[in-house]
Amino acid sequence: MEFDAASPVYIQIGERIREEIVRGLYRPGEKLRSVREYAVFYEVSPLTMHRAMQYLEAEGLVVTRKGVGSFVNPRMEASAARRMRESQARQFVEKMREMGLSGPEILELVQECVREEAEKGGKA
């Protein structure tokens, strides 16, 4: 598993799991893999994995029941998932601004992409 050596690994793993949750790989309330399983999967120490879980808990995405395991926060959907999507969208907009696009141009670009995708999906 590749990580960025310049920043804490527990945050990088936390962000990956957050993405999985927000993308809907886990349903709200669903049990996540155990710390040990994740540690083996990511090839990191169990302590790093514990920290990643604590990070996700602090972010409100995960709840941990002692001795049972960690679960996707059943009430996270509304707030956290939305925040995540917004921050992704904001990052995209920022990047486009850096490339010199105006607001309407960005909107046009997004519309175009969505349209293209729909057409592709329609053909398939």
Binding site: A5, A6, S7, P8, V9, Y10, R51
Partner: peptide, 15 residues
């Protein structure tokens, strides 16, 4: 701690 190497110095443990 390796995590403090990464967060404080921004380099890998090996470097």
């Amino acid at each position: 701690e390796t995590e403090s190497i990464r967060s404080q110095y921004g380099v890998s443990a090996e470097d």
